[in-house]
Design a protein around this nucleic acid. Structure first.
Length: 489
RNA sequence: GCCCCUGUAGCUCAGUGGAUAGAGCGAGGGAUUCCUAAUCCCUGUGCGCGAGUUCGAUUCUCGCCAGGGGCUCCA
């Protein structure tokens, strides 16, 4: 330790702290220097260039567009959106994509369900398909169709009627779904239609490719892919006995399509109920000649509760609390913050009643209050005619910052850069919420202990600078989280 | 039976191959002549169990136990 030389005065002190530990304490000068660097970086503070502009596709939510989004979708939406923000902020060219499963059996069931509800409404005998969609929203849709089209489809050719009604209903649900996601602050760059993959022949082509590569074979009347050769537990069906392609077959074509569009890295966010598909999809990527380019993030489920009692959720039965309802209940900021407070590996118990009751003590308010306080200080300063320097202050003028709480706050601000990097690399957006809370705590603590606007003009200037730095970091953090930074509360 | 996730304070959860493991909620007490008290301060004998790797494991590996999810020519 005696050999350490600190020519630039970075260290305040160095001390031995137990076996194998040496504590280095940053000097006040170093801290002030960092504050200036922070202020200079501004909105870019925390930005990295880890990705070097690489194209990354993040596919998430990808809910079946045949009904309202549930709470779990809200979690994936928040997770995917913030992860995309993080990747973008760390130098990746990120694209957000929603894969629309507008094809196949579920679509068919949905169509038939809407048709049945419509016929019921116009007084025709109808039968709901077995396993059909029975939610109240099906009737809402049918009512809407009835209001706009009247009973003109009563006597129409059944197949034609089904196609028309189904299409109208599906578009309505999809539009509504987009609207809900936009309302939650999530904007997708592309909405990719599964149907398009079938109609363009891409599914057939990718299957043909697998056959030519000797990776697909016929058995028991179906066409199988030899995924077990790439580590899957068993082989998987590509084309069923009834000649319809599986979801898996379309998914292979879909991921092939993503690669063709020039994305170097693919990230899929799936719910835990799909984890059984991971191995076969990874196998498919290898078969396509692109091993290692797909990353699948499995998020654990959200268990909805109400007053401690589990709420059964089933899209078909219609017994569910939708994401939209949750947004209305607790607000976008609280919902996003809440979803991002936990790592995606942990299942979340979301108690609706509790969320409503706790809305006042929700940590998001604590964080936002810090920002409102900062705004309030600045407002007060303006009212008092105190100049707020937008230009960087002289380093010497910051020497007035020497209180413990000031230094602690500054050090907390500096953690932001590495936090952003680590959260991006580790795919851990939830660290942002924890950081925001810690940073807000440091600020509240500083605020309570020291007055910013005083008769001492020089000290006021120095503290205002620290306050501006705090606002900058808080804003950068909240921007990544997609949460508002209010001026007032 | 196989696969994945989880097991940390009364509750909900962070966290790390190293020092005395942290927040919030709940409970009790205290703080406001002053920039918002949606704030702050005080009160805490906790890493499921057992091995292994290591100078050192709550963290990594294996086994076990408990809870959740998945194992369909459903999505």
């Amino acid at each position: 330790m005696a050999h350490l030389r600190d020519h630039e005065g970075i260290l305040e002190r160095v001390e031995i702290a137990g076996p194998g530990f040496i504590n280095f304490t940053l000097s006040g000068d170093c801290i002030r220097e960092e504050l200036l660097r922070l202020a200079e970086a501004g909105d870019d503070y925390g930005r990295w260039d880890l990705g070097e502009g690489r194209k990354v596709m993040l596919e998430f939510v990808s809910a079946n567009p045949l009904g309202p989004l549930h709470i779990g979708h809200g979690r994936w939406a928040a997770l995917g959106d913030v992860l995309a923000n993080l990747l973008s902020f760390t130098g990746h060219a990120v694209s957000r994509e929603f894969y629309v499963n507008d094809y196949g059996r579920q679509m068919e069931l949905f169509t038939r369900s809407v048709e049945a509800a419509y016929l019921e409404m116009v007084g025709e005998p109808s039968t709901f398909p077995e396993d059909g969609y029975r939610g109240a929203y099906i009737y809402d849709i049918a009512r809407g169709l009835f209001e706009s089209c009247g009973d003109s489809y009563r006597e129409a050719d059944p197949e034609e009627r089904r196609n028309l009604l189904g299409e109208l209903a599906y578009r309505q649900v999809l539009a509504h779904l987009k609207q809900t996601l936009e309302a939650s602050g999530v904007h997708f760059d592309t909405w990719f239609s599964e149907r398009q993959l079938h109609e363009s022949g891409e599914v057939k082509r990718v299957i043909a490719f697998l056959q030519e590569a000797g990776l697909a074979y016929e058995s028991e009347g179906a066409l199988w892919m030899a995924t077990s050769r790439f580590g899957d537990d068993k082989d998987r069906v590509l084309i069923r006995g009834n000649e319809s392609p599986t979801y898996f077959a379309a998914d292979i074509a879909y991921h092939h399509n993503k690669l063709e569009r020039g994305f170097e890295h693919l990230i899929d966010i799936w719910g835990a109920d799909h984890h059984g598909y991971v191995k076969r999809m990874i196998a498919a990527m290898e078969a396509l000649g692109s091993p290692g380019r797909l990353e699948i993030i499995i998020g654990q489920m959200v268990n909805l509760k109400s007053g401690g009692q589990p709420v059964r959720m089933s899209k078909r039965s219609g017994e569910m609390v939708t994401f939209e309802e949750l947004l209305e209940d607790v607000g976008v900021d609280a919902a996003r913050f809440f979803f991002l407070m936990r790592g995606q590996d942990s299942a979340v118990d979301f108690d609706i009643e509790l969320a409503k009751e706790q809305s006042q003590s929700n940590p998001v308010y604590y964080v936002q209050y810090a920002h409102a306080r900062i705004s309030s200080i600045l407002r007060y300063a303006r009212e008092q005619g105190v100049p707020i320097d937008e230009t960087l202050p002289e380093r010497s003028s910051l020497e007035l910052l020497e209180e413990e709480e000031e230094m602690d706050l500054a050090r907390k601000l500096f953690e932001f850069e590495e936090l952003v990097r680590d959260a991006a690399v580790d795919r851990a957006p939830h660290r942002l919420t924890h950081y925001a809370h810690e940073m807000a705590a440091s600020f509240h603590f500083f605020y309570t202990k020291h007055r910013v606007i005083t008769d001492d003009a020089a000290l006021t200037r120095a503290r205002l600078f620290l306050v501006l730095c705090s606002r900058q970091v808080l804003r950068n953090c909240l921007k990544l989280l997609g949460i508002n930074a209010p001026e007032n509360m």
